[in-house]
Design a protein around this nucleic acid. Sequence first.
DNA 1: AACCTGATCACTAGGCCTCG
DNA 2: CGAGGCCTAGTGATCAGGTT
Length: 304
Amino acid sequence: MTTGKFIYSNRLLNIETGQQLTKNKHLNFLNKDGEMNPMILSKVNNTIDDILHVEQTGQEKFYIYLPNEIEEKLPKQLLKQISKDITSSEVRVITAIVALAQFAKAKNELVYFDQINRAYFELDLSELYQMMGVGNSKGKLRTLVKEALFGLNQKKYVLIKNSSISISHLVQVHEVDGKNPNKLKITVEGCFFNFEKESYFHLPADINKKIRKFSTGRPNAQVELFIKCLYQAKHCTKNNTVEYSYDTVFKLMKLQKLVDNKNHKHIQPTIEKAFDLAKKLDLVKSIKEGKDRMGKVKYNIEFC
DNA sequence: AACCTGATCACTAGGCCTCG
DNA sequence: CGAGGCCTAGTGATCAGGTT
């Protein structure tokens, strides 16, 4: 299971990078007068109200991970209460579950709920450890993987398909056997398995393992998301290259966060770390830095 | 505001211990 | 004896507070 490739949905990557509104052609965030789309606004507001009143309703506490356009408009204080940034463990767990859902589908072990575009499958935690690249590893790491997995139960995302919007889980996890806590039932949204209806690209099955190997120290979620974007770009390109402006790289890796935290000098090393990791993964062959017509930095990336 | 510094967090790597 | 788990040092990311 450490060789080969699996399919990854473009829509899912857009959700992870907060671009589901940016990339959607059917649903405009702003109308022509520059006002927020009332349908999106009311769904988001309802969810925010739910989160703020969760103690009264007795539900489990949860958080929402918002599209960039909405996050920019909300006050920082409110964001702190209702949202959590995507973590590198979360990025890796989502990647692993996409792969595992596909393996389950191939074995006819995926159970569909067509009407709601969801499915579930059963898995043993050991399979997840393998896909996370911590198969032969220590207890502490396994604990972190488990925490990241069950953490998905507390995260909701803005899901947009064509012109419809919902705010819901991507993944839900339940124990199914009282005697065996390692046996889990995983419910996933359509972007994890419904590739007849989704556009997609490919990822290597051992991606998490390789990333662990090449990227030491504390992992950076945005760098790892950028790597997925590069795999996507490779799938789309016709001449085996892609050109990213500095601004695109800046946006994809959400480097504004570093500026906000006055970590200005970490920006360049972060970009270089991402490019370096892409090279080590045998994804990218070379990167040439140039200037566009406006004199702004751009990167010509040649894939392997 | 820009910059610096130290604390804390989230890992990796590797040595060591334990128990079958 | 050896696989798995525990412990700790090292590293990079992040953050908070202080200084210029």
